[in-house]
Amino acid sequence: MNGEYSLDTTEGMAASGDPPTNNAVDDYDAEEALERQREEENKIKIKLKSFEGGVYECGLTAAKMSVMVANMLDALQETDLTKIATREPIPLQNDAVTNKALEKIVEWVDHHWDDPPIDPDFDDEKERRNEELSHWDKQFIDIADQGELFDIIAAANFMDIKGLVEVGAKHICNKIKGKSCTEVREMLKIHNDFTPEEEAAIHKENEWIYAKD
């Protein structure tokens, strides 16, 4: 795969952090150039290795949706991005990153690689957070096996894939809506660490919840 793609528009950026300046991108504005760069980079396939040893391949741009993976790739200081494809798989050393979880994560990032990057510092983020899950995401995250679902959320959190953690959080949120605290504890296997006195005090503090409006 090395050398298969022309990355003349991206090497300068990777090396200096400045916008591309060569003639190939003169006709594009900065945004289009960035889009093109992301598209080109995603043609480069890199390998990720699960905690269980399974190796999964995904596009470079998709893989960089994980902040952790992006930081690891930055640390390589590789100016010729095509060489990344020939490197050893990137190990993901967390027991939540099982084969199944990583397979699903790769599926998710491969589907979402061209999403606008998430930046929590901008005000439209509030709107995005309030959006309903897309049909694709709903189907993706609707996993019968709770263990697998929680593995994906934990692994996504470990890999710092904000969009996927958000999808998982919304799904969990939908599952706990309307449930009592006992039902939530049972469903999510959460140990009740309140003493009876503490629990009574919280009940008293929140008793307005049960009052008729």
Partner: peptide, 20 residues
């Protein structure tokens, strides 16, 4: 935090009872 910010205030106070 990501889960809770999608919940209603009423449900949030319910969540106070789950664990510390």
């Amino acid at each position: 935090t990501k889960i809770f910010r999608h919940l209603s205030l009423r449900q949030l106070f319910q969540c106070c009872l789950v664990c510390k």
